[in-house]
Amino acid sequence: MKAYFIRRLFYLVPIIVGISLITFLLFRVVGGDPVDRVAGRYATSAQKAELRHQFGFDKPLWPPVGKLLKGDLKGFADNQLFRHFADTFTFRFGRSEQYKRKISDMIKDGVLPSLSLTVPAFIIGIFLQITIAVFCAFKQGSRFDRVVVVLSVIGMSLPYLALIIFGQAYLAGKLKWFPIYGYPEGIGLGVIPFVALPVLLGVVAGLGAGVRFYRTVILDETRADYVRTARAKGVGETGVMFGHVLKNAMIPIITQVVVVIPFLFLGSLLLERFFSIPGLGYMLIDAVNSSDWPVINALTFVGALIYLGALLLTDLCYALVDPRVTLK
């Protein structure tokens, strides 16, 4: 088990290096010189050169291989790529160009508001999706089932943005059931009225795709041999569904559920933006609008790390449940 864990951890190393390399390519190589953006248009070239030197942007982009061949290891290591690696791996993302705040602090502040929106939406959403899907699969081909299938395809085709705008303008603006937008200081029960509508919209938006997916998963199980055996033994339809099919369908369902969890930390880009919830999604869009490159860089890297961490956790859970996994 321990050996398996260590091996899995080693698999992650090249991927984390890859993510850092991609952010370097995007934000440093393709993106160009950040000093021109930070210094503003009135900076003299001497001031810019000073800034470049301060941030290390006057060093070569890539490791100079020539210096390595000459045995100059220090000169070889002194380049922007290695510096970028060192900074990202130690979570030194620097400061936001817009707010001049430390990015790591901004991320810490954004996680809780994001979670206050995504966790309830996720739990309610999953519960509804699976319940409806089970009903559909149980009464496959019935009128209820057919209506739900049609409705879920319609729901999947509706643009998410339009749903949010309509919900905000109609349910909050016209009917005044919810506050139009806003978020209280500090996290407490006071957030409930402010996240209620975004949570509702998030649940509605995910319903179509979710129901369709889980319905297919459950129906796939009903074609398995053990179902025929159970029926041949004389087990009733209810017993087959709840005693056999659902138990086995839990494996793909749990896989699907766990994979979504890391994204909860990143919040919901559009919902947070529309309802002014100061989470990570809001932070990202704000950074895109004001071209705050270091923030986008940091969020990309942290988002990927959270995803990898959750994936590792899933695999470990499988290994705990199924001893065959560790032997592979």
Partner: peptide, 20 residues
């Protein structure tokens, strides 16, 4: 290459690409 790309949440990835 694809494991790396896949581990970056999709919406972040396209935003970063389009932005740059």
């Amino acid at each position: 290459l694809y494991s790396t790309l896949q581990s970056i949440p999709y919406i972040l990835l396209i935003l970063a690409f389009a932005f740059v």
